[in-house]
């Protein structure tokens, strides 16, 4: 058991180092080695998810930059396809999760969160950028979304989440709203003001929040 933990720690260390150096070949080699020791699902849970969580946490404490976070998610998604067979389902059951930028055309946060969650084995419906409250409400109702991730950069976009919540309540949609982006990073109380359920400051928060919602909903 101890050996197993040591081995996983080494893979994580190598993987984090490779990702922060934006060294795709090294990251691929590390995952290939891990694949010899673990099943595909275990590679995701024991190596990829903790590596990405460490990188997300590093951004929070100013040890890792956003460009490294972005490239880490991109590399993981690119090499995952080579390491894990196409027909392999990482998560047998999952909530219906969607992501969007609301009245906002800044897409980096959305791309990063989507990339990380995808690398962690989640299927994410991407509604794109600059959606209006009306159009996002219709998407959520039509697709019966359980969890909506909203990424914003602009304060007015963040404030419009309150109107979205109101519309969803009127339509009796039981969707959990998770928000993230610069305005929320600079104001811890803002997510409550706009009546979101959760706020994530980093991509590792996004993974942890999804886990918490799954536990809460018995998934």
């Amino acid at each position: 058991m101890e050996n197993q933990v040591d081995k996983a720690d080494k893979y994580i260390k190598d993987m984090v180092q490779a990702l922060l150096s934006v060294d795709k070949m090294k990251a691929k080699e590390t995952l290939a080695q891990a694949r010899e020791a673990y099943q595909p699902v275990e590679v995701v849970e024991k190596v990829i998810v903790p590596s990405l969580e460490q990188i997300g946490e590093g951004w929070r404490i100013d040890k890792v930059s956003l460009s490294q976070v972005y490239m880490s998610g991109k590399i993981c998604n690119e090499i995952l396809q080579d390491i894990i067979p196409r027909d392999c389902i990482i998560r047998e059951r999952q909530l219906t999760i969607a992501i969007a930028t609301l009245e906002d055309f800044h897409t980096l946060g959305k791309q990063i969160v989507k990339g990380f969650l995808h690398a962690a084995g989640y299927e994410i419906v991407d509604y794109g950028n600059g959606l209006s409250v009306d159009s996002l409400t219709e998407h959520i109702i039509k697709d019966k979304i359980d969890v909506l991730l909203i990424s914003v950069l602009m304060l007015p976009s963040a404030l419009s989440i309150k109107e979205l919540r109101k519309r969803l309540k009127e339509r009796q949609a039981a969707v959990t709203i998770v928000v993230g982006g610069a305005p929320f990073n600079f104001d811890d109380k803002l997510y409550k003001e706009v009546e979101a359920d959760y706020m994530g400051k980093t991509v590792s928060d996004a993974i942890n929040i999804i886990h918490a919602i799954e536990t809460d909903r018995g998934v």
């Binding site: 460009s67 490239m71 897409t107 980096l108 791309q111």
Partner: peptide
């Protein structure tokens, strides 16, 4: 060019 694409350009 968009943030994500620009980061890819840099690297």
């Amino acid at each position: 060019m968009g943030f994500g694409k620009y980061i890819e350009l840099i690297y």
